[in-house]
Design a protein around this nucleic acid. Structure first.
Lengths: 140, 140
DNA sequence: CACTATAACGCAACTCGGTTGCGTTTGTAA
DNA sequence: TTACAAACGCAACCGAGTTGCGTTATAGTG
């Protein structure tokens, strides 16, 4: 709830309104234990005090993503998932039950690789994505 | 062309036919300089001697993927891309023009990270995906 | 060459995540 | 209270990917 309030306040000082959908969506993401898809979010909102149109959810997600408060991830050929933006991290994806968990990885491990690629391939690296696929504790 | 022939022969010895669609699709993937989406493949096939139904393309891709001759990759929230399977590698994705290039990365860089994750997180790592996003030579 | 089994194919209809245009509602500041 | 624009809902749409089913074509056999 703290993060939701903080984001709403920051947005307000930039001239954006504290709307019902925006607040509900932020609370949903903050409460979630793992990244959510838009259909997930729609269902969770609908089981609350009121539901919102899917167009609204997509637009709000897009808005918060552009504003830097939400980050998007895509795993293999699955639907896009969203979570509150935080420090850079990666994900553990269970190929059996599908749950997604955050995991911290020492970036230094391949920062030298990025520099090598920039030199050798003439490619300017701006970002990377790294996900691990395997079996979570319950599914082994 | 060599790879296409080799795959068709191997499939034949396992009781699978050398059909027009299979051969055309393999040639398309072998000729391509970068991974292709199914719509890409459909277009390229259609500009050749004959076109094929999209269901056929999807089924053939699925078949070749299962047989281990084609590998699939998904970048962020884009459509699935396919390429002939080869030694494990990663990709450089230009965020400007969208081109995708293969790149070899020293796996040892984070194999220790995978072992650390297995121990600390109780997660059995089976596979990983790593893509670099940035600007290719022409787009810098 | 004819026959046969089945791998492979085409077609049409469908699913579902995601988008667009447009008119309406609502939050906020003056 | 008013007025402007941010935010919203609705309906129609788009495109990747799937499914069921009947048809065609490949390749082994007699």
């Amino acid at each position: 709830m703290e993060t939701t309030k903080r984001i709403l306040d920051e947005l307000k000082t930039n001239g954006f309104r504290r709307s019902a959908a925006r607040e509900a969506l932020l609370r949903t993401l903050e409460t979630a234990q793992s990244p959510l898809s838009v259909p997930d979010i729609e269902r969770r909102l609908a089981s609350g005090p009121r539901s919102f149109n899917k167009t609204t959810v997509y637009r709000e997600i897009e808005f918060l993503k552009t504003a830097g408060y939400v980050s998007e991830l895509t795993l293999r050929n699955d639907v896009a998932l969203y979570e509150l933006a935080g420090p850079h991290h990666h994900h553990l994806v269970c190929v059996d039950c599908g749950t997604v968990r955050d995991v911290a990885v020492k970036e230094e491990s391949w920062e030298c690789e990025e520099r090598r690629i920039e030199k050798k391939e003439g490619f300017r690296v701006l970002d990377h994505s790294l996900e691990f696929f395997g079996l979570c504790g319950s599914c082994q």
